[in-house]
Nucleic acid binder design. Structure first.
Length: 481
RNA sequence: GGCGGUAUCGUCUAGUGGUUAGGACAGAUGGUUCUCAGCCAUCAAGCCGGGGUUCGAUCCCCCGUACCGCUACCA
């Protein structure tokens, strides 16, 4: 295999959204290309008229863009390349590896059934291989539309997989698979060979569910006398029940993780460690670090279960790496979408938003947590947590809230220290623990029993808001009783 | 069924012919604290089974088992 410039590709078929398996294959290709100053290109395998849907194309592109797996060059659409395939098919037909087959689908189906019944694997009988030129011409003249099959050679096919090492398949395990349909269009393996060759793909890194295809493709490369790319097959990503991830089983696609508040860098980082390892005791990496580190020698060959919890932990880590400003940028649209505030309001109070995320950041496992954990900063329309309310909003609590609100109102400066001092004083005078005051106050101003340190929380909320909310809580307690 | 691949804590993984088999997530416990989270510390948890090869196998070989994949005029 001669040295060629590195050029890799991801070739999704638009039969659904982008799932994590395809995303990871894309990532490995992307990392390999970037690491080696090569090209990473995108090809859409959209030739399955029955299952391909144009409406899946954009979401796939969006997901790739979200992950910033940006591809080089123009997107290649298989559906637009039928002329190219026809050329190669022409060429293939001239080799002694090609032959026409007139067997009907019904006949083949019957053979298949029989093979099953006999517990044999289905292999085409080669019935049409022995047809004479005259017989073929006669059928053609009669208007029969044959398919084109490849005559699998004797012997075995071997190649060196960059993940699994040397792999061999006895050719007799392969059947004379169909290369072109009766309507003249080529099938998957033929199109892939033509495309990978034509596009100058140097390395084919894909899921190991393609290993059988690889042998078929190699036979086609050989028949067409084309130079082979290097192949590498990465393990599958499995669900917690060890089944291959699939949309049908309810597995999330990449877009759903995005909507849940997963950061693209977290997804990238997590995915990179499924089936690959940098072999050091560190797991959190930036995109650039992954590019620098990525090496096919770190690829392993056993399937990996996708663990949402660990993804979340990675997400948390990457959230912590961001600045308050960056987090504010990410949080703003989520808060607006949730209806707790408006875009305009936030734009005029950016510093406030920045402080809020600064306060909440180490509680954010997914960005969307900002809404549930911090909605009260923007919206007074919260309800009190029922359990906490039962515990804190009693007569004594109301009295404390009312007293504290008065003292807060009288403060000339609403700083952490002043607030703390006011609260401590009250606790001392009443000879009670500070917690007795802190908890009802937190509930009054946030509706929640959990959250950031109270003094910080109060300062960010602001004197006016705090006092208002406390008074309102007092009223609420009185009304209720 | 046939063919192929894989097998280290629950999960993702590192690792070596001789190691206290390492890390991360999750779990447990303790500390910090006004709560939650975080942070810190500690703990628990693994070499699929059986044969070989060898002075010695988690590691190499074989068999078994389990799991995964492929087995279309789909991609």
């Amino acid at each position: 295999m001669s040295e060629r410039p590195v050029k890799v590709r991801i070739a999704p078929s638009p039969t659904g959204y982008l799932h994590v398996g395809t995303a990871r294959a894309a990532l490995f290709n992307y990392l390999y290309a970037r690491h080696n100053d090569g090209k990473f290109v995108l090809r859409l395998e959209d030739t399955d008229v029955a299952r391909s849907k144009p409406e899946f194309i954009q979401p796939i592109l969006d997901a790739l863009k979200w992950l910033e797996l940006d591809w080089d060059e123009e997107i290649v659409f298989q559906s637009k390349r039928s002329e190219l395939y026809a050329e190669y098919l022409e060429r293939f037909l001239k080799t002694d590896r090609a032959y026409h087959c007139f067997c009907s689908r019904e006949e083949l189906e019957a053979e298949r059934k029989q093979a099953r019944a006999d517990k044999r694997s289905m292999k085409y009988s080669r019935k049409c291989l022995s047809l004479s030129k005259e017989e073929i011409q006669a059928k053609l003249d009669a208007g029969e539309k044959p398919v084109v099959r490849v005559k699998i050679p004797e012997g075995a096919t071997t190649y060196e997989d960059i993940v699994s090492g040397e792999l061999t398949r006895q050719n007799e395990e392969l059947e004379d698979f169909i290369v072109a349909r009766s309507d003249g269009s080529v099938t998957y393996n033929f199109a892939v060979v033509v495309d990978d060759y034509d596009m100058g793909i140097s390395h084919v890194i894909r899921g190991n569910d393609h290993i059988t295809n690889t042998f078929k493709q190699i036979i086609l490369y050989n028949a067409l006398e084309l130079e082979l790319p290097v192949f590498g097959h990465v393990p599958m990503i499995l669900r917690p029940d060890k089944k291959k991830v699939s949309k049908r089983l309810g597995d999330k696609d990449v877009g759903e993780y995005q909507n849940e508040g997963i950061l693209p860098e977290a997804m990238i980082n997590y995915l990179s460690l499924l089936g690959w390892s940098p072999k050091v005791d560190n797991e959190i990496y930036s995109r650039q670090e992954l590019i620098d580190l990525f090496d096919t020698s770190g690829l392993n060959n056993s399937n990996a279960v996708f663990d949402d919890e660990k993804l979340l932990a990675f997400n948390f880590s990457h959230i912590q790496k961001k600045s308050d400003h960056e987090l504010a940028v990410l949080a703003a649209p989520l808060l607006v979408d949730a209806g707790v505030t408006t875009k305009y309001w936030l734009e005029t109070r950016w510093e406030f938003l920045r402080q809020v995320v600064g306060l909440l950041r180490e509680r954010l496992h997914r960005m969307s947590d900002i809404v549930t954990l911090g909605g009260y900063f923007f919206d007074f329309d919260y309800t009190y947590d029922p359990k906490a309310e039962a515990k804190q909003f009693h007569a004594e609590g109301a009295q404390l809230l009312s007293d504290l609100a008065e003292r807060f109102e009288a403060l000339d400066q609403f700083t952490h220290d002043k607030v703390e001092a006011a609260l401590s004083e009250l606790a001392e005078e009443r000879d009670i623990k500070k917690g007795k005051i802190i908890h009802p106050t937190r509930l009054a101003v946030s509706g929640m029993s959990i959250g950031p340190g109270l003094y910080d929380l109060l300062v960010v909320l602001g004197q006016r808001t705090v006092v208002d909310r406390m008074k309102k809580a007092v009223e609420y307690i009185h009304q209720r009783s």
